[in-house]
Design a protein around this nucleic acid. Structure first.
Lengths: 205, 205
DNA sequence: GATGTATTTAATAAGTCTATTAAAAACAGT
DNA sequence: ACTGTTTTTAATAGACTTATTAAATACATC
């Protein structure tokens, strides 16, 4: 039996519900009902529902973002980067299937959160370094003549589009073709392999 | 001055707001405030907010879906299909930039709407024909040896992933890189060309 | 112009939601 | 065991929601 700590229990329940149903559709009553404590505790520990959300959101964002940059450092060549990155990305999202939708959704809906990301991530040194590293990898291959001349941003967008969309659309796949967990997992794995092939083939000369 | 017709004015306002902010975040008061009429009219014309939403949702879905099938019939070869389809798809979504997010969002959130799609679209003859046509196009090219052996579903998913994600993430691009309408349009056009190249290159042998 | 129907409004019921407040309970340290 | 602090609860204010109702207005047809 874990030590009872309502603050973190509320965080966990909120995380689950926010990711499942989004900010609007989740009430503080839902959250505390899940924990089994009084609704006022949300305000006691986090002041407002919005602040609780922000805490969870930036936590999740930091998680996924630090994961992304971590993966890029390990790579030596571009093709290595691509397949390694997509593999790790898929593995990461497989254990957090709803995360892509959660993040995209809130970023699209809420302009404030976009500004937050811009300042915290896009303008950060870490991102600039990350992008420069990727750019070097790409330029090296272009010079060698192994790939066509492509913007690193396009490459990155291809990877993110195809990976993220796979997980966003997962509930659709599940219900359209009546698949169980195993079926879904097979589908995800197949998509992963196919996406790697498409991208590597697609940038080759 | 158009003939005043509050029923359709409500529909239009609701369409705008639902697409902009989603079902939950839009209130019937918002909608009628926009039109400038009494809130009770929503219930008078559409019985419930949910029914109003459903009407708009299936209208939009029908629009995009009939567009997709229309485009497939015009194509003769696979490469023709791909570039023609992506071009038309992008053009369509350029005039309805928020539509992809709207549809995906509601489908992910609401299982009932997924079931609706399954019955109305996936299981329809029209879809089955559509898929068979695509399959024939793909098989023909595989036999000719011009492309690698790929599932038509994968090809379709590639196209949809890359196209839809471009528009879903548009607000992010806009705010991250501080682009105006012209900048955004250039970006969209560049992405379109790049996506066509990636896919055609990516399925070639 | 009277009469029946369709449209629109104002008022409001009944529910939900978040945040606040004051009191109660649990837990320290002495 | 007493005292001060932290945690938790119950109760509730106040602001929204959607949907319903009955009354008012506009419209059409005879």
């Amino acid at each position: 039996m874990a030590k009872k700590n309502l603050e973190s229990e509320i965080m966990l329940a909120a995380e689950k519900l926010f990711i499942e149903k989004g900010f609007e559709a989740t009430s503080t009553t839902d959250i505390t009902k899940m924990v089994g404590c009084n609704q006022a505790l949300v305000n006691y520990y986090f002041r407002t529902k919005e602040k609780l959300f922000q805490k969870i959101f930036s936590q999740k964002l930091e998680h996924i973002w630090s994961f992304m940059t971590l993966e890029s450092n390990k790579s030596i060549s571009l093709f290595d980067f691509i397949s390694r990155f997509i593999n790790a990305y898929f593995e990461e999202l497989t254990t957090n299937k709803k995360l892509p939708f959660f993040i995209i959704n809130e970023l699209v809906i809420n302009q404030e959160r976009r500004k937050f990301i811009r300042e915290e991530i896009i303008l950060s040194d870490k991102f600039q370094n990350y992008y420069t590293t990727l750019n070097n990898l790409v330029q090296a291959e272009v010079k060698k003549g192994t790939i066509r001349d492509i913007e690193p941003s396009d490459l990155l967008l291809h990877i993110i589009s195809l990976t993220v969309f796979t997980f966003i659309s997962l509930p659709l796949y599940e219900d359209f073709f009546l698949k169980d967990d195993v079926g879904v997992q097979n589908y995800v794995n197949d998509r992963k392999e196919e996406i790697i092939i498409l991208i590597i083939n697609g940038i080759r000369k």
